[in-house]
Lab assay of single mutants.
Amino acid sequence: QVATSTVRILGMTCQSCVKSIEDRISNLKGIISMKVSLEQGSATVKYVPSVVCLQQVCHQIGDMGFEASIAE
């Protein structure tokens, strides 16, 4: 089973930030795809909930120095 959710990301300033986040999160087990939008300050994450949760994704992004939260 696959889920798609949006994560809000604060602190991104350039495409390099976007690429860094996409590269790191895409390597997590259970992540199918991730598309980060600098303009919208968010990311669309396609993932397998039984393998990885959005809290883990937000935590990983937080470790990179950005502020991440699950969009309502």
Rank of each mutant, 00 (worst) to 15 (best):
Q1N: 07
Q1G: 09
Q1W: 13
Q1I: 07
V2D: 06
V2E: 12
V2P: 06
V2F: 11
V2L: 07
A3R: 10
T4Y: 11
T4H: 07
S5P: 02
S5H: 12
S5G: 15
S5K: 08
S5N: 10
S5Q: 08
S5D: 10
S5C: 15
T6H: 10
T6N: 09
T6R: 14
T6A: 05
T6W: 14
V7E: 02
V7W: 05
R8W: 15
I9E: 00
I9W: 04
I9M: 00
I9Y: 01
I9T: 00
L10E: 08
G11H: 04
G11E: 01
G11N: 05
G11R: 04
G11Y: 06
M12V: 03
M12I: 05
M12E: 00
M12A: 00
M12S: 00
M12T: 01
T13V: 12
T13A: 05
C14H: 03
C14Q: 02
C14A: 03
C14F: 04
C14G: 05
Q15L: 13
Q15M: 15
S16M: 13
S16L: 11
S16I: 13
C17G: 03
V18E: 05
V18W: 06
V18G: 06
V18S: 11
V18M: 05
K19T: 11
K19Q: 10
K19D: 11
K19N: 10
K19F: 09
K19W: 11
K19H: 09
K19C: 05
S20F: 06
S20V: 09
I21L: 05
I21P: 02
I21M: 02
I21R: 03
I21N: 02
I21S: 01
I21G: 02
I21Y: 02
E22G: 03
E22H: 07
E22P: 02
D23V: 11
D23K: 11
D23H: 13
D23I: 10
D23L: 13
D23S: 12
R24Q: 10
R24S: 10
R24V: 09
I25D: 00
I25L: 07
I25N: 01
I25K: 01
I25E: 00
I25Y: 03
S26Q: 09
S26H: 08
S26F: 06
N27K: 14
N27D: 09
N27M: 15
N27W: 07
N27I: 12
N27F: 09
L28K: 01
L28H: 02
L28I: 11
L28P: 00
K29H: 10
K29M: 11
K29N: 11
K29G: 08
G30F: 08
G30N: 01
G30Q: 03
G30E: 01
I31T: 01
I31H: 01
I32L: 09
I32W: 05
I32K: 04
S33H: 09
S33T: 07
S33L: 08
S33V: 05
S33Q: 09
M34E: 00
M34C: 10
M34P: 00
M34H: 00
M34F: 15
M34N: 00
K35T: 09
K35N: 07
K35F: 08
K35R: 11
V36T: 02
V36C: 08
V36S: 00
V36K: 00
S37E: 06
S37H: 12
S37C: 09
S37Q: 07
S37R: 09
S37A: 06
S37V: 06
L38N: 00
L38K: 02
L38W: 06
L38V: 03
E39Y: 09
E39H: 11
E39L: 13
Q40K: 14
Q40H: 14
Q40I: 08
Q40W: 13
G41S: 13
G41C: 10
G41L: 08
G41H: 13
G41R: 15
G41F: 08
S42C: 12
S42H: 08
S42F: 11
T44Q: 12
T44Y: 14
T44I: 14
T44W: 13
V45P: 01
V45F: 06
V45N: 01
V45G: 02
K46Q: 15
K46Y: 10
K46N: 09
Y47C: 04
Y47K: 00
Y47L: 02
Y47G: 01
V48Y: 15
V48M: 15
P49C: 06
P49S: 07
P49K: 06
P49D: 04
P49M: 06
S50T: 10
S50D: 14
V51T: 05
V51H: 04
V51I: 13
C53H: 11
C53M: 10
C53E: 09
C53R: 12
C53F: 07
L54R: 01
Q55H: 13
Q55K: 12
Q55N: 08
Q55F: 12
Q55E: 10
Q55M: 12
Q55Y: 14
Q56T: 13
Q56S: 09
Q56D: 12
Q56R: 11
V57M: 03
V57G: 02
V57W: 04
V57H: 03
V57F: 03
V57Q: 02
C58M: 13
C58N: 09
C58Y: 09
C58V: 14
H59D: 15
H59T: 14
H59F: 14
H59C: 07
Q60M: 15
Q60Y: 14
Q60S: 11
G62I: 15
G62L: 12
G62V: 14
D63Q: 15
D63V: 14
D63P: 03
D63R: 14
M64N: 02
M64F: 04
M64A: 05
G65Q: 03
G65W: 04
G65H: 03
F66N: 01
F66E: 02
F66Y: 12
F66A: 02
F66I: 02
F66K: 03
E67F: 14
E67K: 14
A68F: 06
A68Y: 05
A68S: 05
S69I: 12
S69A: 08
S69R: 12
S69T: 12
I70T: 07
I70R: 04
I70D: 04
I70M: 08
I70H: 06
A71E: 12
A71P: 13
A71F: 11
A71Q: 13
A71T: 10
A71R: 07
E72C: 08
E72P: 10
